[in-house]
Amino acid sequence: MRKELDEILEGVAFFAGMGEEEIALIAGCGRNVRFGAGETIFRQGDAADVFYVVRQGSVAVGHFAPPRGELVIETIEVGELLGWSWLFPPYRSHFDARALTTVRATQFDGACLRGKCEDDPALGYDLMSRFAQVLIERLQWTRLRLLDVYGDGR
C-alpha cells in the first residue's frame, strides 16, 4: 500500500523532481480516499487538517452565498491539489468543496506534514516552494477571470 502510494505520487506534477526519500516521507502522511458524486469533501469553516491530490474525477470549489445559493468558483481536476488552509492558522477551510463526479484522491494529513517540515527545514522549504507555485498559478488564473475577457467580445 505504502509502495503504491509512492508510485502514485511520483506521477503527480506537484511532486515532480522530488527525491525518493522525500516522497516516501510525504506518502507516510497520505492515504487514498474516494467520494461519491455530489458528496461534500469539506465545508467553509471546517477545521482544515488535510489536503488532497485528485487522481480521478473533478471537484467544485465554491461558496454558499444566500440568497444566490452555491456559487462554483473553480473546479479542481486530475493531478491538481485541493486545500491549502491547513498551511496557516486558523486552519479553517475558506470554501466548500464538493465532488462533481466520483472522485479518487490521495488525502494528506496536514498536521503530520507540518511536523515533518519543522523537523526537516529542507523538506519544509521544498514543499512550501511547491505550494507557493500552485497558489501563484491559481491567483494568476483568478486575475485573468477578473478581467472578464468575454465581456465585450474582445
Binding site: 473533478s58 467544485a60 465554491g62 445559493g69 462554483v72 473553480e74 473546479t75 488564473w141 477571470r145
Partner: peptide, 23 residues
C-alpha cells in the same frame, strides 16, 4: 470545455481556457 463562472447546475469545468493547455 470550461467556463469562467457557473452555478451548481453546471457539472463541467470552471476556470480559464489557457489553463487547459497544460494538460
Amino acid at each position: 470545455v470550461t467556463v469562467d463562472a457557473a452555478d451548481t447546475a453546471w457539472l463541467g469545468r470552471v476556470g480559464v481556457v489557457p489553463k487547459l493547455v497544460a494538460q
